[in-house]
């Protein structure tokens, strides 16, 4: 499970934009080796010698950028606790530690025609990157990208402009109906489920309640579907065993796997939700 291409570096913050509603995009300069980061991979970001937060935090990569002759990675995040609150106070020019790229990325080698993205809340971060990746780098069989983007309320809908640009259709929904369809992103996806079959590849990311709902929905279907999961983790490299998730094999046997190195991308049917 070694990732020899992974680095631990100190990067300078070159951009930090507030998007409203406690959402931010932070850009960090990184060595050119980070250009190989794939959608679905993540980085552990540490805030130097601060006591709070003590541990680095995992963030999926939202965008890879050339910045003033250097490589930059961008992270989309929402303030959710002490770590992200401290991160929101970081100013341009300050340094952060970055460990990565880490984990498995999404599989883009399947030759399916319809690409379907199902993003709940911050799940838009890896899936926005994936939409960009398909349009830029994946050549061949795919003909369309459809996005389902949902959030609790309109103020939490971020990154839709990007998917609207990159995807042939973007279906927006909010739990409270303040924008787009009323309901969860899984409700919206469920409504269109009969449109998708053998030729479709579904990628999903979002809060665990949403992922559970999606797993239930796809239990009886044979749709190709990968999900990217989130768990508390300390190391990001497979050592602390903090980010365990229960998985089930085709023979029915169960085992804990590590979200950090065995994932964070899994086949939706391999996850055993408890």
């Amino acid at each position: 499970m070694r990732n020899d291409a992974s680095l631990y570096i100190s990067g300078t913050v070159y951009a930090h934009r507030a998007l409203g509603g406690g959402h931010y995009v932070i850009g960090i300069t990184v060595p050119s080796a980070f250009r190989d980061v794939r959608p679905g991979q993540f980085v552990m970001v540490g805030m130097g010698n601060r006591q709070v937060p003590f541990l680095p935090r995992p963030f999926s990569v939202y965008h890879v950028d050339g910045h003033a002759g250097e490589t930059g990675i961008e992270i989309l995040y929402k303030i959710a606790g002490k770590g992200t609150r401290a991160m929101s106070e970081i100013r341009v020019g300050e340094s952060l530690s970055v460990l990565g790229p880490l984990g498995t990325g999404f599989d883009c080698t399947h030759k399916k025609e319809k690409i379907i993205l199902v993003a709940g809340g911050m799940g838009i971060a890896p899936l926005g990157f994936l939409a960009e990746w398909y349009s830029r780098y994946v050549t061949g069989s795919w003909t369309s990208i459809m996005a389902y983007v949902g959030a609790a309320t309109s103020g939490d809908l971020v990154g839709c402009e990007r998917t609207e640009k990159l995807c042939s259709e973007t279906h927006v929904c909010t739990d409270d109906g303040s924008r787009g369809l009323r309901g969860t992103v899984v409700d919206a996806f469920r409504r269109d489920l009969s449109l998708f079959g053998e030729e479709s590849a579904v990628y999903a990311c979002g809060p665990s309640a949403m992922m559970k709902e999606l797993s239930k929905l796809l239990k009886e279907s044979s749709l190709w579907c990968q999900v990217s999961l989130e768990e508390r983790m300390a190391c990001g490299v497979g050592a602390c065993l903090g980010c365990a998730i229960k998985t089930i094999g085709s023979d029915g046997s169960t085992a804990y796997k590590r979200v950090c190195t065995d994932g964070p991308v899994f086949n939706v049917r391999d996850i055993l939700w408890e």
Binding site: Q51, F54, G83, M233, L241, C243, A244
Partner: peptide, 17 residues
């Protein structure tokens, strides 16, 4: 196999596991 998750939590200047 180990314990069911969640297994870790950051605490003041440290962590529980």
């Amino acid at each position: 196999e180990g314990n069911p998750p969640p297994r870790i939590m950051e605490t003041t200047a440290g962590m529980l596991n």
